[in-house]
Design a protein around this nucleic acid. Structure first.
Lengths: 144, 144
DNA sequence: TTCGCAGATGCAACTCGATTGCATCTGCGA
DNA sequence: TCGCAGATGCAATCGAGTTGCATCTGCGAA
């Protein structure tokens, strides 16, 4: 989890997974690795500068990064996909997010590792994710 | 959690929450209470008979039932909202679902009660939900 | 170093779940 | 039984995400 993401190691990670190291992928990966929360396509487009990459390119790039296992996807209450760097979040089978009900931002709870619950007979669980909803620090503080 | 949902008690529950007991609300509530899984708007429309209620009415009715606390909403991996009766699921602050990655169906794990995790300073958690993804029984059995 | 092409990108059109505006209808308290 | 706030239906619209197709380019091979 480097503070200054290294584009060379990102490029190597991409190539090791059979994906080309393109500007779009390196920029998006660096952005997600530096972020302290899960970003939507809209967040990413705004951060990189609107118009730098096409909307379709952003979606396809994110799909490819998820497929390569470098990025995790989750869907928020407002039906928007959000993305976080797998390296920063911890690429575990179980994962936890905090979703602020006021500002809509999503934070990774990297050190929370939810336990696998008992399932009904015949059901096979694979991945587990836990969502906590409430108010984030900024919204709690502006709540006085 | 009655096996045969009682429309009279549903009507009373609606009125107690300041909502009218209309045919759409009573039919949808009865359907959700009888279901063993969370239903999408499309599932509900199909079950009640296409054309019986307008799509907009279904969405607005479901919104109202969620607002009244009689129904819980969750969003699946495919960005579709799914609804389950709060009474059947257990209207707790924490809740768990199983989402089948093959058929897309969503099951309530009524007896699983995820623990509240530690949050970063300043964050206030309110509701918790746990999602387990994998294969449901039907899809596991057809997997041979 | 250059070359070729599979894979990546951009643009336009499209899909589909969900929402909004507005006219009409109705549950239910008075 | 009457009035009206709240509920419903219809049409238009929104917005996240996808698809088809033409063009471009990273990168392995020559």
């Amino acid at each position: 989890m480097p503070l200054q993401p290294d584009p060379r190691s990102s490029a190597a990670a991409l190539r090791a997974r059979g994906a080309r190291a393109t500007p779009a992928r390196l920029r998006i990966l660096a952005l997600l690795e530096a972020a302290d929360r899960a970003l939507s396509r809209h967040d990413i487009e705004t951060a990189l500068g609107p118009g730098l990459f096409d909307r379709v390119t952003l979606y396809r790039t994110l799909d490819r990064l998820v497929e390569a296992g470098l990025v995790l996807r989750s869907v928020d209450e407002r039906r928007v996909s959000r993305f976080s760097a797998a390296a920063a979040a911890g690429a575990h089978e179980s994962h936890a997010h905090f979703r602020c009900e006021r500002c809509g931002r999503v934070f990774c709870l990297a050190d929370v590792r939810p336990a696998r619950p008992r399932l009904p007979a015949g059901f096979r669980g694979v991945r587990i994710d836990l969502n906590v909803r409430g108010l984030c620090r900024a919204c709690t503080e502006s709540d006085s």
